[in-house]
Simulated assay, not measured.
Amino acid sequence: MIGKKIAERIGRPDLIDILTTELTGSELTSLLLEVFSRKTEQLSPADLLRVYQTNRFVKPADVDMVGLRALEDQVISVASDFDFIPLELSPVAPLGSCSVVATADQKKILSATRQTEVVADATNALALHIADLRDGKRNAITSASDLLRFSAIHRHVRTPTLPNIPGMRSHFKIACFVTGGRDTGNYQFEKVALTEHIAMMTAFFRDTLQIYDLSFQLYPRKGYPDPVAFIGKLSDYLHQQQPDCPIEVMTDGLNDNNYYKGLQYKISITVQDQTIEIGDGGFVDWTQQLLQNKKERMLTTGIGLELLYRLVERRFS
């Protein structure tokens, strides 16, 4: 661990424990702000330029902004037709937004000061927004069956080292869609929410972009009493509601994916003879954890919008 080695090198092996357990969040923030202030005082304009030239997090994306914006407008328009309310999220989220309720490692996220982190997954930020709206201590929910639908397009930042591939960046645009609600029995939330997400994705890819080679794969995941039977019920309902939608139930078994609960689904398209997994989604227990209520339900979907644009950019040029 690098932090431990640094602490031992300066003769304070207990430094990390002191910073994490003996300081309050506001005290640690004040300390870090003072450290960063002194660090910037040591920087010259030449140093600043050198950092810009070498830091992989700060360079602009090598994508046509006008064309990408046009694609963004299309997906938001389709989502709005399905009653997903678009949100312009903050560039930062509370510290731990991904790692506390999901399986993300905080080391893969760009942590910041003032108890925040740079957004690494907008669906986690949207989960916090839904949980805040559904918090009975603060807001009155008119009905347990009410569904909250939100969409967001956000540039995500993640820290893992990337392969040396042209166009690969540590930041990228993702279109995210979430539905939050409450269990009302007979998997009604799950049936309705999943059908809406898949219908919306079909309307976007097939009807709007004319990408007709489109398919959805359903994977059983741990988290429900009988995930295989659960997938079967959802598949039957989907076929009734969307009879012309290509849906395949996968039999890969219950692997070690602990991110999704009960079901994960993937979206595949074929463009220019390339078959690409362009997005995925599934049920998560984040609002259950945030609100400490096992009845809460949430479905997320995310598509690689920047990757999609690179595949279809000729249409926007």
Rank of each mutant, 00 (worst) to 15 (best):
P91I: 02
P160I: 09
A152W: 08
T161W: 13
E72C: 15
V75L: 09
D14M: 05
P91W: 07
M200E: 06
G96N: 08
I16A: 02
R138I: 06
T40E: 06
I174W: 04
D83L: 05
R182C: 12
T301K: 06
G180N: 01
S268Y: 11
D207G: 03
D236C: 01
N164Q: 15
N55E: 05
K39I: 14
Q210T: 14
A199L: 07
I130V: 11
Q292C: 02
E117D: 07
I303K: 09
G302K: 07
D213R: 13
K294C: 06
E306H: 14
G11V: 00
A104V: 09
N257S: 12
Q217I: 04
Q210E: 15
I16W: 01
V249P: 03
D207K: 01
L128F: 06
A70I: 03
S143Y: 10
H129E: 15
I16C: 02
K4Y: 15
R12V: 12
I276E: 08
R134D: 12
T195Y: 05
L33T: 05
F36N: 10
A104I: 11
L48E: 09
R114T: 08
T287I: 06
I76N: 01
Y260M: 05
I198L: 15
Q210N: 15
I269Q: 11
D47M: 02
Q289E: 15
T21E: 14
T301N: 08
E117L: 04
S151W: 00
A193M: 09
D183M: 03
K4Q: 15
